[in-house]
Simulated assay, not measured.
Amino acid sequence: MIQNKSGDSSMRLALFVLPFAVLTACATPREQCISEVTRDTRILSSLINETRANLARGYAIEREQDVRTIRRTCRGRNDDGTIFTFRCDETDTFTTSVPVAIDLNAERAKLESLEERFVQSQAASNQAVAQCIALYPE
């Protein structure tokens, strides 16, 4: 079923940024500075790629998580060493990809806007990277 949903971009953004946050914890001060000042440009680049893919497909793909409780039979051991069985619940999380209808004209306009912002962000990032290099020479 195709649904029209608009949200969850913050979740995708968080999942995109998390690996960079982990990597910067081990980086030199110069690398941390450069990573920080280029963050917006990296995010915009990712959003541009996603928007282009949506336009090429004609629809977006949204990831949804489904939590299910599965009943199982578990085993235990009494104080006297005898084994007994009992019902136990196990929770599993499943992620599924769901096609989502999009307005192609709005998606094209979004891409154009993202590309304009990327150019501006790239220029600002280049200046900021030069400052990082000057501040933290190797």
Rank of each mutant, 00 (worst) to 15 (best):
C33H: 08
R77L: 05
A130S: 07
P99R: 13
G76H: 10
A124L: 08
R12Y: 05
T73H: 02
S35R: 05
G81I: 03
T24G: 05
T28W: 12
S10V: 14
R77N: 02
V67M: 13
A60Y: 00
F86L: 05
K5F: 15
Q120F: 09
S125W: 01
R87H: 01
A128Y: 05
A60T: 01
I2W: 11
R108S: 00
I133H: 01
C26Q: 07
V119Q: 12
R71I: 04
A27S: 15
P99G: 12
A128W: 06
I83V: 13
A21I: 11
V17C: 09
F118M: 04
R71K: 05
L114K: 03
D89V: 00
E62I: 04
Y59L: 04
C132V: 06
F16L: 15
A56D: 14
P137E: 02
E107R: 05
E107S: 06
K5Y: 15
D40E: 15
P19Y: 10
L47T: 09
R63F: 12
N54G: 03
F118P: 03
F86I: 03
I61S: 06
L55E: 00
A134H: 03
R75S: 05
N4G: 11
R72S: 00
L111C: 12
T28Y: 15
F16W: 14
V100N: 06
V98S: 09
C132H: 02
R117N: 12
E62K: 00
N54M: 09
